[in-house]
């Protein structure tokens, strides 16, 4: 079934088209939701919400973007909505312990050493698992910015708008989030020496 046939089928309420939609895009939507939501039930809820949104709005899909891109964006938005509904003020751990520390003269307190074997390890499922776990350890307010900017490749403006924060906050959280993630990955990648 071509993309155009799929869209026409969805608009016509064709059962086969919906089955193809769920089969084709459901898995990757769940993968996206899992990145944002630590809890599997929450991720599954977000996927259900995303599909409901798709069912309701497929008639409004104008075809300016690829169907996959449109669906992906809906999945990200559903995950963000779920994340927002779960977040509570004041219960977030500080990111400070994960940031590099400096002496009064501006030098690093602990010198950084090179990572080795990353090129070979890039294909490794084990390393991706380590990266996923490390991202999950980031404070949510930084994690979500890192996911939107580095993985979903939203612009700073889009990220700021999605989260209702300023562009400056996006910039600061992204940089601090990356530094914290680097700190969490450091022991694993130094061990490959």
């Amino acid at each position: 079934m071509s993309e155009m046939e799929l869209i026409q089928g969805l608009r016509a309420g064709d059962n086969d088209a919906f089955e193809v939609l769920i089969k084709t895009y459901g898995g990757r939507m769940l993968s996206v939701a899992r990145r944002f939501l630590r809890n599997e039930d929450d991720a599954r809820d977000a996927v259900q919400d995303a599909f409901i949104s798709i069912f309701r709005s497929i008639g409004a899909f104008e075809g300016h973007a690829l169907l996959a891109t449109w669906i992906h964006r809906i999945a990200v938005n559903a995950a963000l909505m779920k994340l927002r509904s779960l977040s509570r003020r004041g219960d977030e751990e500080s990111i400070e312990p994960l940031l590099p520390r400096f002496r009064s003269d501006g030098h690093q307190i602990e010198s950084s050493v090179p990572w080795h074997g990353v090129d070979e390890a890039l294909e490794s499922e084990e390393l991706r698992h380590t990266v996923r776990e490390a991202i999950e350890k980031l404070p949510p307010s930084h994690r979500v910015v890192l996911l939107l900017r580095d993985i979903e490749e939203l612009t700073p403006e889009e990220t700021a708008e999605s989260l209702g924060i300023t562009r400056t906050a996006v910039k600061v959280r992204l940089h601090r989030g990356r530094q914290a993630l680097r700190t969490l990955l450091d022991p694993h990648l130094k061990e490959r020496r």
Binding site: G27, R28, S31, V32, Q108, P114, V131
Partner: peptide
Amino acid sequence: RSCVAYEESYRRTIELEKQLTRDDLRTSLP
């Protein structure tokens, strides 16, 4: 040298994040 190592590992961190999208096409819906 410490900042050379830090800069390289910071770039690698971003590359490693992007690798996670590989899971998208491998995941199936229960």
